[in-house]
Nucleic acid binder design. Structure first.
Length: 108
DNA sequence: TGAATGACTTCGG
DNA sequence: CCCGAAGCCATTC
């Protein structure tokens, strides 16, 4: 598994997500030129367990829904992590998602 | 080789 | 905005 280039890039972008902000899988995928492979971004996040510095909890789907919360420990760790950063989460959905959304394409 | 899977997205209704 | 269906692509079995 030395082919971690894609995962590494995903992790890099995820690390660049500012505190208290969130982004989407598609945005990361597009930024990496892998638009259409948003699922692979999610897969990369699954591998992000290798790098604990990767704030996977800041990555949600395009609706701001915490689709991957079940991949975290417990049942609400992801939500707690976000709330601890000041991100309001209700019903597994990020509030003010449009304002908290961080687009690597525009911000970088 | 091929079928199934998934932390997604887009489109039509 | 919600819902169903289709597309996408790396990974796994």
């Amino acid at each position: 598994m030395g082919n971690d280039g894609f995962f590494k890039r995903v992790h890099e972008v995820a690390k660049l997500v500012p505190y208290g902000r969130v982004t989407s899988y598609g945005a990361i995928a597009k930024y990496l030129g892998a638009a259409g492979s948003a699922r692979m971004v999610g897969w990369a996040m699954n591998a992000s367990h290798n790098d604990r510095d990767v704030p996977a909890h800041r990555v949600v789907n395009r609706k701001g829904l915490l689709t991957g919360k079940h991949h975290f420990e417990g049942t609400n760790l992801m939500q707690q992590l976000l709330e601890s950063e000041g991100v309001e989460v209700v019903d597994n959905q990020v509030q003010n998602f449009d304002k908290l959304f961080w687009d690597p394409m525009k911000e970088l």
